[in-house]
């Protein structure tokens, strides 16, 4: 009996709790990706690099003596501006062609290559890690969890709810959904479609930047960090249904738990192929994912 309790306390409990924190991190990444895809039909291959840029901005600001909590507010604003500019300057150029899926995918892929090398040029190859603003760990039901991760789970949850409210409960969100549903109809009803596109892209990029700041104290900051979450985030977006916020949340939680728990039974290196295998399976059998697209119910 004690053995079972002990394995629950030491093995399964922490696994679930840690998986939850990782799940929130992945969902934060996936949200921006899925919103951009849902509205613009753009697969943003440089999403990971925007995440990295957010983290680097935080490192720079903290280095200048700016309070970490202030960074949480400043960086997303800066990132939104960068995202807006990127959409207007680059995405728009190939947006109206028939092959916009492929062209925007290639374009953002090129952007990712440049960004990664630019980080190296600007910050050097060595990693940085901002000191965690909340130290210490708490024991909940015998499970040790660092306080910062508890904060991450809470903050991440709040952000997810806020994003959902913005998209589904505000006029702004209604415009976005209208533009996603039928661009021409929305335009004829007076929705400034072009600006809504750029604004949505900016919103997605700001979310990536915000995740960068939030996760920097846990995962450290280095030039190739954009690759870290991006595969998992793509998987979450596909399994959840491209463009679906609800789907991303469910898929994010389920897949990270699968990864977390499976690493107890199989060699951890196989948990990645396992999750990608699930993605391929979904693409084969149910390409629309768990839930429908943004603006499509």
């Amino acid at each position: 009996m004690t053995e079972i309790l002990e394995s629950l306390q030491f093995v399964y409990g922490p696994q679930v709790a840690n998986g939850l924190a990782i799940g929130v991190a992945v969902i934060l990444m996936a949200l921006g990706l899925t919103i951009i895809f849902g509205l613009l039909d753009v697969i943003n291959m440089s999403h990971g690099e925007f995440y990295a840029l957010g983290a680097y901005l935080a490192v720079t600001l903290v280095g200048q003596g700016v309070n970490f909590w202030l960074c949480l507010a400043l960086v997303p604003v800066a990132m939104a501006a960068i995202g807006y500019f990127t959409e207007r300057a680059l995405i728009q150029r190939v947006f109206h062609t028939k092959d916009r899926h492929i062209l925007t995918l290639l374009l953002t892929f090129g952007l990712a290559i440049i960004a990664e090398d630019a980080f190296k040029l600007a910050y050097g190859p060595n990693p940085y890690k901002p000191e965690s603003p909340i130290s210490g760990a708490s024991e909940i039901l015998g499970i040790m969890l660092p306080n910062y991760r508890l904060f991450l789970i809470a903050a991440g949850g709040a952000i997810i709810v806020a994003v959902w409210l913005v998209v589904y409960r505000t006029t702004l969100g209604a415009m976005v959904r209208a533009a996603a549903w039928d661009k021409n109809m929305a335009a004829s009803l007076g929705v400034p479609v072009e600006r809504v596109y750029a604004g949505t892209f900016a919103f997605g990029v700001a979310l990536a930047g915000l995740s960068g700041v939030l996760l920097a104290p846990i995962y450290s900051v280095f030039p190739t960090m954009g690759k870290d979450f991006i595969l998992m985030a793509f998987t979450v977006v596909i399994v959840g249904g491209m463009g679906s916020i609800k789907g991303a949340v469910i898929a994010g939680l389920v897949l990270t738990q699968i990864q977390s728990i499976s690493s107890l039974f199989i060699s951890p290196v196989w948990s990645d192929p396992l999750v990608f295998g699930i993605m391929v399976l979904f693409l084969m059998v149910r390409p629309q994912g768990l839930a429908g697209r943004l603006g499509h119910g």
Binding site: E6, S7, F10, V11, Y12, G13, P14, Q15, N18, G19, A21, I22, M144, I218, Y219, K227, D228, F229, Q259, S260, S263, L264, S267, P268, V269, D272
Partner: peptide, 20 residues
């Protein structure tokens, strides 16, 4: 003993085993 993937981002899934 545990072998984590190269470039692993989060080691907390292995901490339960270490504690135990």
């Amino acid at each position: 003993e545990v072998f984590a993937p190269l470039d692993n981002k989060d080691y907390s899934p292995f901490f339960g085993q270490i504690r135990a």
